[in-house]
Design a protein around this nucleic acid. Structure first.
Lengths: 207, 207
DNA sequence: TTTAATCAATTAAACGTTTGTTTAGTTTAA
DNA sequence: TTAAACTAAACAAACGTTTAATTGATTAAA
């Protein structure tokens, strides 16, 4: 995996996020990366293998950060929830193209191999978050909630903002072409909203 | 728009939801619907027009129900929120194929005309929900929250469950082929979870 | 130092399929 | 008889992939 490999992957990522996997041709990718069409087969074997290489390329580190946070004994469950939200909001909004591709591929049944790979990664992250919430419940600071859907709400809200960007640009009157403006505004809004909501949701009521 | 039109649209809907718009060929659709390939151009003009026809076909009524609920003076804001959740969860999970297509199409920039159509529909629904929340705030039963992201959370959570179905089937140990089982289980879980969460989120704290 | 050999990197061109759409003709029903 | 419904076949264009030839750099022998 040299610089040229990465350069092609990053060009492919942009196109896949914009037009979807099937909407992007190998010629598009080669054109955007400025290489010969045959180089893509030569480097990756096939278009599908290129997609798998892209997932591997982008999936590094997330797990490490989550695991490290999970093992940190200094942080309270509330701290961990706040850190978790910051981590995910930042990570997804800074790699929104890649996450859009993951969502698109998970929704459609194009390639079993790719889908299994994505599910494996997501399920792993899911378990780590579950541990944080369970710890909070054991320490009696979180109430009983629907575990899967609570995590689904966090993921889903962030995914909504990245996958329906054109809708939110219209609603919030942000220029659709202003990538940076959208990301900055949404990062702030998402962090505040999710923390406020999860605080209310997880807090033990005294009613 | 006769029965044969509808039959083709429903075959297309299934395939688009499974394989995406670009992943589905006109021959696939014709084959699934049991009609000659040329009939699709004859009926709809083009593949893109077929998609637009599908959106029109499935977008009826939602607005009407929302508007009727909004104008109902007997319901409290809390009642409306509960009704809203029931309506959306049922509607989306019973038409999950169609909603997956909408999400896929909104995320990618394949056709401006189609995307604009979807944005228009979604933005309209957005405004109606906004009115419900604003009414609750005016009556001092809802607290101040991030309007766009609160609605985004409701939509996003439901969308998450439909677009990442294969992930949730693995997590909840539901057979991936058991369409009905998944829908019934998720309808219940979603209704409970969203009501519980929104109640905590919108409730006026006395801290 | 020059020459020859070697091998990966790169290319243009072509491969056979599949794509969405159209044509030209046939069937059906009023 | 006429117009709409329907079909098999063909269309050019685009698809992912492969081929065969060429380049460029590295190594070994003369």
């Amino acid at each position: 995996m040299n610089d040229k490999h990465k350069h092609i992957l990053e060009a492919a990522e942009q196109l896949f996020a914009e037009k979807g996997f099937n909407g992007t041709s190998v010629r598009d990718i080669a054109g955007a990366a400025g290489v010969n069409i045959a180089m893509i087969s030569y480097y990756f074997g096939s278009k599908e293998n290129l997609m798998i290489a892209l997932i591997d390329y982008r999936s590094e580190y997330t797990r490490d950060i989550l695991e490290e946070m999970n093992n940190n004994k200094m942080l309270t469950p509330w701290d961990k929830i706040e850190k978790l939200i910051d981590l995910y909001v930042d990570k997804i909004l800074n790699n929104y193209r890649f996450y859009r591709i993951m969502t698109l591929h998970l929704a459609t049944s194009q390639s079993d191999e790719i889908r299994e790979k994505i599910i494996e990664i997501k399920a792993g992250n899911f378990e780590l978050i579950k541990k944080i919430i369970l710890e909070g419940q054991r320490k009696n600071v979180f109430r009983k909630i629907d575990m899967e859907l609570t995590i689904g709400t966090v993921m889903g809200t962030i995914a909504q903002v990245t996958s329906s960007r054109s809708l939110y640009c219209k609603l919030l009157k942000i220029d659709i072409k202003d990538d940076d403006g959208y990301r900055k505004k949404m990062t702030l809004k998402l962090r505040t909203h999710l923390k406020q909501m999860l605080k209310a949701h997880l807090h033990i009521q005294n009613t």
